[in-house]
C-alpha cells in the first residue's frame, strides 16, 4: 500500500510533530538517570540546585545531544544508502565504511591509545575505506553500476575479518573495552562535531531530495529526466559514508537504527525523500535517545551498551510494524 502523494501541509505537520517528540524525549532524558533528580530542582537556588545543574548540564546534556546526533546521522546514512543501492533493506554499514572505522578504532585500542586517538583512528579507517571504494569502483560507467555494491560488500567482509583478527590477538584486559566499542556506546561521546556534521549533511541531503526521488526509481529514467546519474550516485555515496563514519567515530557501531528507522518511516509516511530524509533524521535521533534512556536505567546503576538495547527492543517493534502493514 503506497501512501498518498506528499502535500505541503502534511509535510509541515509531520516534521513539527516529530520535532515535538524529540524535544519531549530530550526533557525525559535530562530528567531520568541513575541518580533521580526532579527537573524542578534545577531552578532552586543554593547548593542542591547547583548540584542538579552540574549533573544535568555536564553529564546528561552532552550524552543526550550525542544520542540525538548519532541517531540522526545513522538514519540519514541509511536512508541515503537505500536510495543509492535502490534497496529498501540496505543499511549504513553495508559498504564497509563502519568496518574501516572499527579496524582503526580496535587497532588504536590495542596500541593503548587515548579516547581521542581511538576516535581519530576510527575516522581515519572510515575515510580510508571511502577512498578505496571510490578508487576501485569510481570508474564504473556500466549501465547497472553494480561494482559499487560488490566492492563495498567485499571490503566490509575484509574489515570484518581484520576486526576479528585484532580481537583474537588482544589481551584480556583490553577485550571488554573493544567489544563495548563494537556494540556501540554513548558514554563519553562528544556531541559537538556530530551535531554540526548532522546539520550539514541534512541540508545537503535535503537539497538533493527531489533528484534522489528520481534516482530511486531507476538509472535510465533518471538520465532521461536530465540527471547526471554517475556524479549524483557518488555524491550520495560520499554523503552517506561520511555521515556513517561520523556516527561510528562518535559512538561505535550502533546497529539497526540506520536500517529500521528509515524503513519504518517509509511504511508510515511514504517514499517521498523530501519528507523522508528530515523525518528519518528526527526519528533516528528520537529512537536512539529513547534506547539510551533505557540503557541507562533498565539495570541501573549498571549501564548497558545502547546498541544492544536498540537491537533488543527495536527489532520486535519493527517486525510488528511490518506485520501490521503487510496484513492490510
Amino acid at each position: 500500500m503506497a501512501a498518498e502523494r506528499l502535500q505541503r501541509g502534511r509535510f509541515g505537520l509531520v516534521l513539527a510533530g516529530l520535532l515535538l517528540l524529540v524535544l519531549l524525549a530530550i526533557l525525559l532524558s535530562l530528567a531520568i538517570g541513575s541518580s533521580s533528580l526532579p527537573l524542578g530542582e534545577v531552578l532552586h537556588s543554593g547548593e542542591a540546585g547547583q548540584a542538579a545543574r552540574d549533573v544535568i548540564i555536564n553529564l546528561r546534556l552532552p550524552r543526550t545531544l550525542a544520542a540525538v546526533a548519532v541517531g540522526g546521522l545513522l538514519a540519514l546514512a541509511g536512508c541515503l544508502q537505500q536510495v543509492l543501492l535502490r534497496n529498501p533493506l540496505a543499511d549504513p554499514y553495508i559498504l564497509g565504511t563502519s568496518g574501516g572505522a572499527s579496524v582503526g578504532a580496535l587497532l588504536a585500542m590495542l596500541l593503548g591509545g587515548s579516547v581521542l586517538l581511538v576516535n581519530l583512528a576510527a575516522g581515519a579507517g572510515a575515510l580510508a575505506t571511502i577512498l578505496i571504494v571510490f578508487w576501485l569502483a569510481g570508474s564504473d560507467h556500466s549501465a547497472t553500476q553494480a561494482r559499487l555494491l560488490l566492492t563495498g560488500v567485499a571490503l566490509a567482509a575484509f574489515c570484518g575479518a581484520l576486526s576479528s583478527l585484532l580481537l583474537s590477538i588482544a589481551p584480556d584486559g583490553l577485550l571488554r573495552g573493544m567489544v563495548f566499542w563494537l556494540l556501540g556506546d554513548l558514554s563519553g561521546a562528544g556531541w559537538q562535531l556530530a551535531l554540526i556534521g548532522l546539520a550539514v549533511f541534512l541540508v545537503l541531503g535535503f537539497l538533493l531530495a527531489p533528484a534522489l526521488n528520481i534516482l530511486g526509481i531507476g538509472l535510465q529514467h533518471s538520465h532521461s529526466l536530465g540527471l547526471n546519474v554517475h556524479t549524483l550516485r557518488w555524491v550520495v555515496y560520499v554523503l552517506a559514508a561520511l555521515a556513517c563514519a561520523l556516527a561510528v567515530t562518535t559512538a561505535g557501531m550502533i546497529g539497526f537504527v540506520g536500517l529500521i528507522v528509515p524503513h519504518a518511516l517509509r511504511l508510515l509516511l511514504g517514499q517521498d525523500l523530501r519528507l523522508l530524509l528530515p523525518a528519518s533524521v528526527l526519528g533516528g535521533g528520537l529512537v536512539l535517545l529513547l534506547a539510551d534512556v533505557l540503557a541507562r536505567t533498565l539495570l541501573a546503576p549498571q549501564q548497558l551498551p545502547v546498541g544492544v538495547v536498540m537491537g533488543l527492543l527495536g527489532v520486535p517493534v519493527f517486525l510488528w510494524l511490518l506485520q501490521q502493514k503487510g496484513g492490510r
Binding site: A2, R5, R86, N213, I217, Q220, H221, G226, R266, Q271
Partner: peptide, 22 residues
Amino acid sequence: AQQDEQAFPQTVLERVLTGRFP
C-alpha cells in the same frame, strides 16, 4: 527505456509526475 524499474513503492500518479522534473 525497455525495462521499467521500480525499487520502492510508488503510486501511478507519483510516477507520471516525475515527467515534470525537468
